[in-house]
């Protein structure tokens, strides 16, 4: 499978994502510069974490206008796999590929810590190989997922909330929600299921050397789904 990792000038998790899909999982990966306009022949686009254009304005608000994003939107609309991690999730909501918005964390502070996720929908292309719970490192100041009650209702009804913050035993408690997201939402997909946005960083726990490798299940799932589709 060929991964394309978009590098905005302020991306800082692009190398990490590249390392995991290529060195840990053994797939092809290349960086796509934000000034490019063509994705060429990638099978999955990763919008990595970081601070795309500094994010002094709303996170991802400028990235939305970057030259490569037209191609990413086209690719997504044609059914291509797109995963936005952290800042990438913020970019996806800004472009409208995913609904809602990511607000400042409820506690107003940047939080870097391991959280836990329950997989709320194990049938999506991103979760087919996931265990019921995952360790999920987060690192963000704006990760509080918010949307109108109608949109939340729709997401829940359609099974599009695929990750929720939970306790280590998998309970969706208020205490296990690090940032105040509605319904403990940590990750959602679009209607077709080919676009995923999530605040946690699965690339940070994809190797046992770093303490936990459960995050790799998300990448393995999409590789599995791609190969099944092909």
């Amino acid at each position: 499978m060929r991964f394309g990792i978009v590098t905005f000038p302020g991306s800082n998790c692009d190398q990490d994502a590249h390392h995991v899909v290529s060195h840990v999982l053994g797939h092809e990966a290349r960086f796509i510069w934000h000034k490019e306009t063509d994705l060429e022949d990638v099978d999955c686009v990763i919008l990595p974490g970081g601070f795309s254009y500094g994010d002094y304005l709303r996170c991802g608000a400028i990235a939305r206008f970057s030259p490569i994003m037209d191609a990413v939107v086209r690719f997504a609309n044609e059914g291509g796999y797109v995963i936005g991690i952290c800042n990438g999730f913020q970019v996806l909501t800004e472009t409208g590929l995913l609904p809602g918005v990511l607000l400042r964390n409820q506690g107003l502070k940047f939080i870097c810590e391991d959280t836990r996720l329950v997989v709320a929908n194990g049938h999506s292309p991103w979760t087919v190989l996931c265990p019921e719970t995952l360790v999920a490192p987060i690192a963000h100041a704006e990760g509080c997922y918010f949307a109108s009650p109608e949109v939340i209702g729709q997401l829940e009804e359609q099974g599009r909330v695929i990750f929720r913050y939970a306790s280590s035993r998998g309970e969706e408690l208020a205490e296990s929600n690090p940032n105040g997201s509605i319904n403990n939402i940590a990750g959602i997909i679009n209607e077709a299921g080919n676009v995923l946005g999530m605040m946690p960083h699965p690339e940070r726990n994809s190797e046992t050397a770093l303490g936990d490798a459960s995050g790799a299940a998300i990448f393995r799932s999409i590789i599995h789904s791609f190969e099944a589709r092909a």
């Binding site: 800082n12 990490d16 390392h19 940047f110 870097c112 810590e113 690192a139 770093l210």
Partner: peptide, 26 residues
């Protein structure tokens, strides 16, 4: 303090803040 610092980016942090007498990096 340290939960406000991104201490994991670059995938090199083997011993995180508070876990050992020194940070250990790949």
């Amino acid at each position: 303090v340290y939960r406000q610092y991104d201490h994991m980016v670059r995938l090199g942090t083997l011993e995180r803040p508070g876990d050992a007498d020194a940070a250990v990096l790949r």
